[in-house]
């Protein structure tokens, strides 16, 4: 499997980023959903949000890397067998997923930095606040973060169902080429 994308298939950088980000997005959603109901004396009460913030920042970094790579090594075009509707729908879903993941990451960052403090990414480095203290920003950023992350999961389900449909019903290469498998 080559590193770069060809006109036929995905290289390992694009496919690797795709699956890594898929796992991280679902993992962060689950972690966020679980951690907000922890009791105050739970061992995870401060650790889980620390991991959530840290991984979230790294996710934004991975998404920036992904956009750069997409520009350097454009993904293969849709399969010839896909209908015009399928191409348009897939294109829209992919674009929206990119936008929503960035919005989720940025609003998550804005919650924690609304008091002007930075975010410690593990014990590795600190991302400073860019806004300084903005009163009540944590509230609107929190609402957007909540609904956008739900939207990402809903859209990811539609995206996955589409891939499964191509694989099982159409029996085409859509899912196989993202998995790095040879054409059948």
């Amino acid at each position: 499997m080559p590193a770069g994308n060809t006109t036929e298939r995905y290289g390992w950088v694009s496919a690797g980023l795709h699956w890594l980000i898929a796992i991280v997005v679902v993992g962060l959603f689950w972690l966020g959903w679980w951690m907000v109901d922890l009791s105050y004396y739970d061992d995870w009460y401060t650790l889980a949000p620390h991991i959530h913030r840290s991984v979230g920042i790294l996710l934004i970094a991975a998404m920036i890397l992904r956009l750069l790579w997409r520009w350097l090594s454009p993904p293969p075009p849709a399969l010839a067998s896909h209908s015009r509707f399928e191409r348009a729908a897939a294109h829209m879903a992919h674009g929206l997923l990119y936008v929503l993941i960035f919005v989720a990451g940025i609003t998550g960052y804005l919650i924690s930095t609304a008091d002007g403090s930075g975010i410690d990414v593990f014990d590795w480095f600190t991302v400073p606040s860019v806004t300084g203290e903005v009163k009540r920003m944590e509230d609107w950023a929190g609402s957007v973060h909540y609904w956008v992350t739900w939207a990402i999961i809903a859209l990811a389900v539609v995206h996955a169902l589409g891939a499964v449909k191509h694989h099982v019903v159409d029996r085409d290469e859509t899912l196989r080429r993202m998995l790095g498998l040879r054409p059948r």
Binding site: I111, S112, T113, A114, D115, M137, E138, D139
Partner: peptide, 8 residues
């Protein structure tokens, strides 16, 4: 309380 996450 001077801590955005806590205030939220």
């Amino acid at each position: 309380s001077a801590h955005a996450e806590r205030d939220k």
